[in-house]
Design a protein around this nucleic acid. Structure first.
Lengths: 206, 206
DNA sequence: CGATAGATTGAGAGTTTTCAACCGATGTGG
DNA sequence: CCACATCGGTTGAAAACTCTCAATCTATCG
């Protein structure tokens, strides 16, 4: 959505390609560019001291990337990794500054987007404290699958999004399949009943 | 910090007062105003279905309030509550829009602020998944106490910030006092050794 | 000084993690 | 095109951390 509204204003455009699992930028680095996704899927991950990974956000076609650190004027707090082969449009900080000045819409868009992400992050925070792993996993399955139906999410990615371990994800998915709420298909899965999956009471044990 | 840079541009100014524990706005409400804190302390809390509360953010003098929802164009995702007696300057959405147009600095300030908060929220998310309650509590003690040294934080508030229960906070604080890292003073406490408190190994059990 | 909100401490329960072993899918080189 | 290597997934059992519930204590304030 972003890229389309900014593209006309770009003067110096360049594109880069990344293979699956390649790192686009590292946690701790100073942001030098803004990126827009031309094609592919990108995940934003944080790795803690103990080595545990957390999956913060997913980005898809036309999404902007690296904007939080750029506008926060901070180093990256997490690393962006290509989940599929990815093509990015790169825009330098200087160019971005210029575009923001001639086209205030970009900044309006970005501030709305970041504000929404902040709300979402805080509600996830509350959920991590409040909800069982079972519920968080159900919600993550719906969120991730709806957002990118064609990508095959690994148990590990789901776990890192939901804030749990891949073993727990596997267990919960087995249980959800027995309840006919999802269907495992190889390593992929599909959702049979969205509403029930989200309104889960989970006092069901087979 | 915000209020000072915006004040000169305000045409219609009005102030409201709140007593301790009064609710400034409710989760779910549609934002109609922006608020600036003239004096006092405000907490942003979310209450989940099960009744568990989470403490998202603190606001103090000159901070802006209600901005996330305003810029996200969403209803409030949490409630703002006066932690002390509070005086707020109220600015209508219309006025805010006008100010943003004549004074682009406000929006630059806000986007930086929200971006930093998003980073912080996501790192808390990662910490909730990764760190022990003990460590999260130590960090919360430092954060809250440094930010507002004169406010007497309750165990409940600390717990809701750290993502744990007040009983666990009480236990950890007792332990930290035995290690001479903090000192309990009535219901208040002071920090004796910041660095050690943050670099805690916690394999220490007395 | 009594009332009340907040704090402490103990013991037991429960979810989730951890560690470990094993299984199955997928993809590649011979 | 098969065989094997590898990555991802499943399942079990035990351990661990934190929560919950409950009883008791203590600041603080009218």
């Amino acid at each position: 959505m972003f890229y389309k509204s900014v593209e006309p204003y770009i003067e110096k455009k360049s594109e880069i390609e990344f293979k699956r699992n390649q790192i686009i930028y590292h946690e701790g680095d100073e942001p030098k560019n803004l990126y827009f996704i031309v094609s592919g899927l990108v995940g934003l991950f944080h790795i803690s001291e103990s080595g545990k990974e957390t999956f913060f956000r997913v980005f898809g076609k036309d999404d902007i990337l690296g904007h939080r650190s750029y506008f926060a004027e901070e180093p990256y707090h997490a690393s962006s990794i290509a989940l599929t082969p990815v093509v990015l449009a790169v825009i330098s900080k200087e160019e971005c500054k210029r575009i923001c000045e001639v086209n205030p819409d970009l900044i309006r868009e970005v501030i709305r987007n970041i504000s929404q992400d902040l709300g979402q992050a805080e509600l996830r925070l509350a959920g991590l404290f409040d909800k069982t792993a079972h519920k968080r996993i159900s919600e993550s399955l719906v969120y991730l699958k709806l957002k990118h139906p064609n990508y095959v999410w690994t148990r590990k990615e789901i776990a890192e999004y939901a804030g749990t371990t891949f073993e727990t994800v596997a267990r919960v998915m087995t249980q959800l399949e027995k309840q006919n709420l999802i269907k495992k298909e190889g390593r992929d899965f599909s959702i049979i009943n969205h509403e029930q999956l989200l309104s889960l009471d989970e006092d069901y044990y087979s």
